[in-house]
């Protein structure tokens, strides 16, 4: 049953992608509205898919790659919809929709069966730890998107070659603010994610920290974003440098999330 909702969400995200790209090409307001509407609808259906899976499985469905990718896509869309209330950056939807679509398509490629929960994961810490970490990741994903858009727009203005993107992308100031805002939300979430994981590790594995690859890489990610936040707050980093940092941070984050699971082995590998 949850798979039906899941597939419906996938299709809606694809439609949203089409609408957002149509907006990017034509700049017609209608497509922007359509894109946002589909994204909201996709989010609703996707939420239903998660709830149904939760009821069917009896545990928070974030325990294997299929579930994680799906949950990550859901977090990104959710975080975008929240951010969008304050920052009306339509083109961001043209980033979020395809990313959600790709993530959820990836998720569909991994085994979808509901399996009995590994005993070590049977804990109320599971939803807390994973949700915090994923919302943090989603924030950083948006910071990454803002960073990429910033670099493109800055390139256009600096080089004085005003191309199609100039009219389509928002002001540098807005992109920089967005980057900063996502960082200020994402960093505490990541921090809490790591702390909650550590507390959980103590009760499950008997040690707060055991230098498992996931832990190590999370710490590296944390330091990167800490450096960025520090640079912004004290030295006045902004613009290009902050954008590049957000992009690098995101690359490490993707490795922490996917690379560690797929390439390295450790305590966090469950599939």
């Amino acid at each position: 049953m949850n798979i039906i909702f899941f597939m419906a969400a996938l299709i809606i995200y694809l439609l949203g992608t089409a609408a957002s790209l149509a907006y990017l090409v034509s700049l017609r307001r209608l497509f922007a509205k359509l894109g946002k509407f589909t994204l909201t609808a996709g989010f609703a259906v996707h939420s239903a898919a998660l709830v149904v899976r939760y009821l069917e499985a009896g545990y928070t469905p974030i325990t294997n790659l299929h579930e994680s990718l799906s949950f990550f896509a859901w977090s990104i869309v959710g975080v975008y919809l929240v951010i969008n209330v304050k920052y009306q950056v339509e083109v961001l939807a043209a980033f979020v929709s395809p990313v959600a679509a790709v993530l959820i398509i990836l998720a569909s490629l991994f085994p979808k069966e509901i399996l009995p929960l590994a005993p070590v994961l049977e804990s109320y810490w599971l939803p807390i730890h994973v949700t915090l970490a994923f919302f943090g990741n989603a924030m950083f994903t948006l910071a990454f998107a803002a960073g990429v858009m910033y670099l493109i727009q800055e390139r256009q203005i600096k080089s004085k070659k005003i191309g199609a993107f100039y009219h389509r992308l928002p002001a540098l100031k807005i992109l920089d603010d967005l980057n900063y805002r996502c960082l200020t939300f994402g960093f505490p979430l990541l921090t809490l994610g790591i702390i909650s994981g550590s507390v959980w590790a103590e009760s499950a594995w008997g040690a707060y920290w055991s230098w498992d690859p996931k832990e190590t890489w999370s710490l590296i990610t944390w330091f990167l974003y800490a450096a960025l936040l520090h640079g912004r707050l004290t030295v006045g980093w902004r613009g290009r440098r902050a954008a590049i940092f957000a992009i690098v941070g995101f690359a490490v984050l993707v490795f922490t999330f996917l690379g560690v699971n797929l390439l390295l082995t450790g305590l966090h590998a469950y599939n």
């Binding site: 700049l27 203005i157 100039y166 009219h167 928002p170 002001a171 540098l172 100031k173 807005i174 603010d177």
Partner: peptide, 24 residues
């Protein structure tokens, strides 16, 4: 159409650029 939305005089172009850099 978007006839009115683009700056086609030098001083309008300057204002538009300033807004693309600084927002409001």
């Amino acid at each position: 159409t978007k006839i009115a939305s683009q700056a086609v005089s030098v001083s309008f172009a300057a204002v538009e650029l300033a807004k693309k850099i600084m927002g409001s």
